[in-house]
Simulated scan of single mutants.
Amino acid sequence: MINHLQSEINCKNFGILLCIHTGIRIGELCALKWSDINVQTKLLKIDKTMIRTYTKEDGSHLSITPPKSRSSTRMIPLNTWIMHYAILLQGDTDNYVLTNRDKPIEPNKYRLYYNRILKELELPHRKFHALRHTFATRCIECGCDYKSLSELLGHSNVSITMNIYVHPQMELKRKCVELLCDYYK
């Protein structure tokens, strides 16, 4: 999927790559404007999310609100690889990242776009949120400490990160138990 997204780079494909490299939620991604990406400091500011609410009186309403918790407001460092695409695609500061226009795409419509890519590439269906899980797991595999990962994901404590988002592969588990060989020799 990453190869496909890179080979056909556009704002929507960049959004998926950005999630793979930052672990942001789909609502946070849909609310992002180019002004939230600081090219000089290579930082991504997360301070809003997009949600659709339903009421009997008003029906459906799309809104941009503060993130789901205080700890979800955060700054995420961006790596050089993802910054390359941000600089390449960057539009007007008031434009939304995914559309490069002053009108956003809502999470449900963007999720449909993501699902179409999976189908087109004949990849197994995975929920969009799986990108967040994958980010967390890969960070742990690369040696990221739990506290830093917890803050990158916008969690209020490390146990949320560990219990919900980190799925070590069998190889890592095997490596852990093999370490005991040297200890007991």
Rank of each mutant, 00 (worst) to 15 (best):
I82D: 13
E178N: 13
R101L: 15
V166Y: 06
N13A: 13
L118E: 13
L32K: 06
C139A: 14
P168R: 02
T99S: 15
L121M: 12
D58R: 09
I140N: 09
I76K: 02
L32Y: 02
S148C: 09
K175W: 01
N13P: 01
N115V: 08
K175P: 03
L5R: 06
L5K: 02
E28D: 13
L88T: 08
C176F: 05
S156M: 03
M162N: 09
S60V: 10
Y113N: 11
K33R: 15
E8L: 04
G59D: 11
M1R: 07
C144Q: 12
R111N: 15
K119A: 14
K127I: 05
T161F: 05
L153F: 02
R116H: 11
K175V: 08
F14V: 04
F128C: 08
K48C: 13
M50C: 09
I51D: 13
D94H: 08
Y85M: 12
P107M: 10
T73F: 03
Y85Q: 11
N38E: 13
V158M: 09
V177M: 14
E178M: 07
I105R: 06
Q169Y: 00
P124V: 05
M170T: 09
L89Q: 10
S35G: 02
T73Y: 01
R25C: 08
W81T: 13
S7C: 06
I87G: 03
L121Q: 15
I82S: 07
Q40N: 14
I37E: 06
G23L: 09
I16Y: 07
L5H: 03
C144N: 06
E151M: 12
M50A: 09
L89C: 10
D58E: 14
I64Y: 01
A31H: 03
V39G: 05
Y85T: 00
L131S: 08
N115R: 09
W34F: 05
S148G: 06
N163L: 07
F128L: 13
C30M: 06
L44F: 04
C181L: 09
C144T: 09
P66Y: 05
T22D: 11
K56C: 04
S150C: 08
T80F: 00
Y183I: 14
E122K: 10
K56W: 11
K127S: 15
Y184Q: 14
E57R: 04
E171H: 00
N3W: 02
Q6L: 12
I117G: 10
T65Q: 14
N108D: 15
N115K: 10
P124T: 06
L149I: 07
S60W: 10
F135I: 09
K42D: 14
Y96K: 07
C19Q: 12
K42T: 03
P107I: 04
R101P: 03
E120I: 00
C176L: 12
G154H: 01
E151H: 01
R74C: 09
R116D: 15
S63F: 00
T53L: 08
N13F: 00
I26M: 10
L17C: 07
